[in-house]
């Protein structure tokens, strides 16, 4: 009893310590967002924003195109997350549950694609997009959506394949015996069990699409079509950076990611109960 308790205390203390170390830079960002300009950098650290101000936030929100760019970012992210989840789940099934000609080559290709540095692809990708068969994809959100989709798909397929492989095949076998169609078996049995994996890859896709900068900057020109990261970059000029407003903007853009996570995190907890089913 006491040993259990000591263990719990030790675990919780470690948890709190890890939390503090990890969160500190984020805290520094958020607290800067509440500091007046003169307090952003000080010789003696100001641990708390005192006096605190909301002017950085009002300044950030009132910058041109904020809400338009929020809309654009939300659109891009929703489409990327939804499509990547569906496409990668299907592909992961194929790779984890079937053996077929070309399977190895496909896996190697998917790994190799991720090794190409993004910066080296900017020019070739731009050439390809501006000469796309169905009309130029430059300065269009769809172009950026498709680009992000290809960047996250290899990762999602690959990760999901690992999750699918971790699930005993006997479960689908049982469903097949019970008279389900094969696809039905996949959807009814596998999907809930792969949920934690899907959540993990969705968070990944969400954050990648939400935070990507250079492709969005180069490919989207019109201010009304840009995403939030490009909007954020406008806080930095040759005359210096309005750090307080920038941090306020960054805090605002990080919020949706956290909200998304809090919404889906139950799925991770759900994974725990799913584990029980398996055993």
């Amino acid at each position: 009893m006491t040993r259990r308790r000591a263990e719990r205390i030790a675990l919780n203390t470690t948890g709190v310590l890890v939390f503090l170390v990890m969160i500190f830079p984020v805290y520094w960002m958020v607290s800067t967002a509440f500091k007046p300009g003169i307090d952003v950098q000080t010789f003696t650290p100001k641990w708390f924003p005192h006096p605190a101000t909301l002017s950085n936030f009002t300044d950030a929100i009132h910058r041109p195109y904020f809400w338009q760019d929020v809309k654009n970012s939300v659109f891009v992210v929703c489409v990327v997350v939804a499509l990547s989840a569906v496409l990668s789940f299907l592909a992961a099934l194929a790779l984890a549950r079937f053996r077929f000609y070309g399977r190895k080559a496909f896996i190697v290709l998917i790994i190799a694609v991720q090794m190409v540095p993004l910066n080296a692809l900017i020019i070739p990708l731009y050439i390809a997009f501006s000469n796309a068969p169905g009309g130029t994809q430059v300065n269009k959100l769809t172009g950026v959506v498709v680009a992000y989709l290809t960047f996250v798909l290899p990762f999602c397929i690959w990760t999901l394949r690992g999750f699918v492989m971790g699930i005993p095949q006997e479960l689908e076998e049982a469903a097949l015996v019970d008279g389900c169609s094969r696809f039905g078996a996949f959807v009814r049995i596998l999907l809930p069990l792969v949920a934690p994996g899907l959540v993990a890859t969705s968070i990944f896709a969400f954050i990648q699409a939400w935070n990507e900068y250079i492709i969005a900057y180069v490919f989207l020109s019109s201010p009304e079509k840009q995403t939030l990261t490009v909007w954020l970059a406008n806080f930095t000029t040759n005359r210096g950076t309005a750090w307080g407003s920038l941090m306020a903007g960054a805090t605002l853009t990080a919020l949706p990611v956290v909200a998304f996570f809090v919404i889906v995190h139950r799925k991770i907890a759900f994974g725990l109960t799913a584990g029980g089913v398996k055993g």
Partner: peptide, 23 residues
């Protein structure tokens, strides 16, 4: 007239890309 504002850090990257893409 479409005025697009650029950032100093990356505007040449974008300029080179648009030259390559012909726009």
């Amino acid at each position: 007239v479409d005025v697009h504002y650029q950032t100093w850090t990356d505007h040449l990257t974008k300029f080179d890309a648009t030259i390559a893409g012909g726009n």
